[in-house]
Design a binder for these strands. Structure first.
Lengths: 349, 349
DNA sequence: ACACAAAATGAGAACGTTCTCATTCCCCGC
DNA sequence: GCGGGGAATGAGAACGTTCTCATTTTGTGT
């Protein structure tokens, strides 16, 4: 009773049809969900397909129906917890819709983003979710602008692309940072050092602005020298060096506010190295509730990543399925502060 | 000097050819890297393509050349540090070869693995890297066996699929675990509790076996009750409960050995909750050098994930490019112990 | 000026589907 | 028995490439 092997060398719908004694058209109808076929022939076709181990060719199908059931996700680095959670949420949703996901890491390099974008266009993906690496103020190249503004459904996430009329899903960087600032100020801190990596992306800019708003409410401004940017963001040592410089130059600093989550390790190591106790000697507050923050019991601003990913996917699929545009949609999700033990009143009342 | 818009509604190579005043065949030659065209016409074609914003259709190309320049990666959960690092390494390598990667999360569910596999086959990916969820002893379904054993290049990674003649890349679970066991035994521990999640995958089995080997060398065996399995692996609480039970039932336990990295948090929380000091009251050693291990200064067995991913990708592309089989290739990478402060001699000499 | 090889080009098939349109089949009512 | 109508089926085009094969053009040596 063994099914004949029918060497898998390309078993097409035509072969299935042949075996079932019908035309290719009928075979297609039997397996697809359109047109009408008699129950008898449907069964014959299905049997033939099974006997031949028929695997429909999605490429040919895409060719014909002009639809790939594939989306692309362009992110900085899948290893970063933020992006891996985001990608997971998106992939999960897409799967439910019968879609597959091409994951593209840019490593924060604009030229890689361009290459990936180009590639996704060539592959005719049905939609793209993009966390752009474009710098907030630099002129976009003609090439990339052309791709961004093409007809293909595209949702930007986490980082806004200046002047681009496409939906955006992000968290409330401004408000969240304002809230964080108020919290530290409310505890009595007046000399708060700020450290940022990834200086040029919009989200970082917004967080800085939010913090300045909080300061302004207390009649303060962010003294130059009290905010430092670390370009080589992913290298722990660079961030640590920046932290060291800030603290050395400003010995009166009573709190440290980290604008990006790769900085936890940098700051922690430097503080430990100089024997600073947290929060007795210095308070520490970071952006992003990653594992390290929990492990070290650091108070952190947390973002609802799952929701962000879900919303981005929902929006994208609405654009795909219903040909909607959502041109100026901006979905902003609130952040929250996870209070832990790393923040207290400053040493000198 | 603006280029005419040429509404993007499907600008094909035929349109480009038309504009350049040549046939489609010539246009294809001009842009491809085969055949010969005069420099003059090549330039005309390239100009036309640029003016029309021509984006080659990779679907049509795949259809014709029977090759998609896409690979699929099937993993448990991209959110897990191990898998996200693995996926990154693979994607990076694939990119260099001009390939894109479809990332598929199974959430450790065999039925999802099957669905994804089916989907990848339909999409005619050129190859698959698979971290299987198949249980080591369960009978594989006919469906999945058929897919596993199809002609398409497939490399298994991290977890062996029993009886499958396909290349495997993994780390030395047996040796690494043996080494870890010897280390704890060498320190003087004789009552070592072992906790595992993911009981049914091969890698866990091997680690357990390695540890038993080490015990055997000291003339000991693993007392039942001193090893506990946690099925609901990804829930911190479940792992913690298991830990609690083990310690409650065996108060003489002087060291805890964690076979899978999701368990760090579980064990840590439980130990802290019962006021146990590490390593004074109890030593702790875990598998997988994840961030948490570093943050908590826990001694850990570390695996060269990048290398594993790279090797898997290299093998796969060799199979793709050179039609090699590598049927019984097994690449085993050595693990190492990262010594930290969590292990010491047992309380009672 | 002629022959001949090499270079350049074009026509058209093929890849595996889906789906329109036309045709055939079947059943039913009168 | 016949007409009509809906269900079932088949033929064939189209999707956008690449690449083979045949043909035309170009160039070169005598």
């Amino acid at each position: 009773m063994r099914s004949e092997k029918g060497h898998n060398e390309s078993v097409t719908i035509k072969r299935v049809a042949e075996r079932a004694g019908v035309s290719a058209a009928t075979a297609a109808r039997a397996m697809g969900k359109y047109g009408s076929v008699s129950e008898k022939t449907r069964q014959r076709v299905l049997d033939a397909a099974h006997a031949l181990s028929y695997v429909p060719n999605a490429i040919a199908k895409s060719m014909r129906v002009q639809r790939t059931r594939t989306i692309g996700v362009i992110i900085g680095d899948i290893q970063a917890p933020f992006f891996s959670k985001l990608a997971f949420a998106i992939e999960d949703f897409a799967n439910r819709q019968g879609y597959n996901v091409l994951v593209c890491n840019t490593n924060e390099k604009p030229e890689r983003e361009l290459r990936h974008l180009q590639s996704l266009f060539e592959r005719r993906v049905d939609g793209i979710i993009l966390s752009s690496t474009q710098r907030f103020n630099s002129e976009m190249s003609q090439d990339i602008r052309r791709l961004y503004e093409s007809e293909i459904p595209l949702v930007t996430v986490d980082r806004q692309v200046n002047g681009l009329k496409r939906p955006l899903v992000q968290c409330n960087n401004l408000g969240g940072s304002y809230q964080a600032g108020k919290y530290l100020l409310g505890l009595g801190h007046r000399n708060i050092g700020v450290i940022a990596s990834n200086q040029f992306v919009n989200s970082t800019r917004e967080r800085e602005a939010g913090f300045r708003m909080a300061l302004a409410e207390y009649g303060l401004t962010l003294r130059p020298g009290m905010i430092r940017y670390c370009e080589e963001s992913f290298i722990t040592e660079a961030g640590r060096q920046i932290t060291k410089e800030l603290l050395d130059d400003n010995p009166d600093t009573t709190a440290l506010y980290l604008l990006n989550n790769p900085l936890y390790r940098s700051a922690w190591l430097e503080l430990k190295a100089r024997g600073a106790r947290i929060p007795e000697d210095i308070s520490l507050l970071g952006w992003g509730d990653v594992e390290l923050a929990e492990a070290w019991d650091i108070t952190a601003v947390t973002q609802p990543i799952q929701k962000i990913g879900l919303r981005a996917a929902e929006t994208l699929f609405d654009m795909i399925d219903n040909r909607t545009r959502h041109e100026d949609d901006v979905a902003v999700f609130d952040t929250a502060i996870v209070y832990r033990s790393s923040c207290a009143k400053p040493r000198t009342g």
